[in-house]
């Protein structure tokens, strides 16, 4: 029923920022594809859409939603689903992905990816919402693992089992954010390598990399913040190597969303992702 192939190439990509438009059009190497945040391209016209049309002629595009609130207790916003359908319809991107999170409650959008308890009730709700996305968009989506700062007492599922079961019920693929894995594992006190070992890598259509900040909790324990405002940390690159050893080559995305650097800095991160892919090909 749905296109089961992920059309993103197993190459480095970057999260697109308008200030990099000219540099990317002039010499994108080693970037082989781009990811956009869906909500930034839902205006009626102007420069954002003109740039996106130009980029889509040169690069495979991944549309990454940050506002659908798939884990929300209420129904999915039909207006927002219709906007996504419109964008995905005219752009025909190589991939569409969203988050295991909620962000809207009672029509108030909170502009953050908020956490979910891993319970049977959440599982049913998330699976129903993904079924609806599949139905409306007519394509299979990828679901991204969150970065966690806390846990829910009521949770009865591990995150990896939860994701595996959502994928089994809905047929969705997964977007593995290895920085989120590292952040969550550090924050909640488990080994990130164990998470990767438990994770259904065969379902991964895309991998995310990003920088994080370091803080401390009330007990002086490390509290990592998924800030997307710096270089990818060395232990996250190491976790990527471990993941690629087991999963094989996948599309790798470098995200940098706050304090966005000049193009050469981001291109260097993409080259590092390229070397990680070259290492497993050797």
């Amino acid at each position: 029923m749905y296109d089961q192939t992920n059309a993103l190439p197993p190459l480095p990509g970057v999260g697109y920022k308008p200030q990099h438009f000219i540099a990317l059009m002039a010499d994108p190497a080693p970037v082989g594809w781009l990811e956009i945040h869906a909500e930034n391209y839902m205006g009626d016209g102007g420069r954002p859409l003109a740039q996106l049309r130009a980029l889509a002629e040169r690069f495979p595009i991944s549309v990454h939603g940050v506002g659908l609130s798939i884990g929300g207790e209420g129904r999915l916003d039909p207006d927002h689903l219709a906007r996504l359908k419109h964008l995905v319809g005219w752009l025909n991107p190589a991939s569409f992905s969203e988050h295991l999170a909620w962000s809207t409650h009672d029509s108030h959008f909170l502009n953050d990816l908020l956490p979910l308890p891993y319970t049977d009730a959440t599982l049913t709700r998330v699976a129903d919402h993904i079924d609806e996305v599949h139905e409306v968009l007519g394509r299979r989506m990828l679901l991204e693992n969150p970065s966690s700062y806390l846990a829910f007492a009521e949770s009865t599922w591990s995150e990896t089992d939860f994701l595996r079961e959502v994928a089994r019920r809905t047929g969705c693929g997964l977007l593995l954010d290895v920085n989120n894995v590292f952040v969550s594992a550090t924050n909640l006190g488990y080994a990130p390598q164990a998470y990767i070992a438990d994770y259904p890598l065969e379902l991964v259509g895309e991998i995310h990399l990003a920088g994080h900040d370091e803080d401390q909790d009330d007990h002086g324990l490390p509290l990592l913040i998924d800030s997307h405002g710096s270089e990818v940390a060395d232990p996250v690159w190491a976790l990527l190597d471990l993941t690629l050893d087991q999963a094989g080559a996948r599309p790798l995305l470098v995200e940098w969303d706050t304090d966005v650097p000049d193009w050469p800095v981001l291109a260097e991160e993409a080259r590092r992702a390229d070397r990680a892919l070259a290492r497993i090909a050797a």
């Binding site: 930034n40 205006g43 962000s103």
Partner: peptide, 9 residues
């Protein structure tokens, strides 16, 4: 007043 939709624009 929080955003009424995910369109931060």
């Amino acid at each position: 007043e929080q955003p009424g939709s995910p369109l931060m624009m």
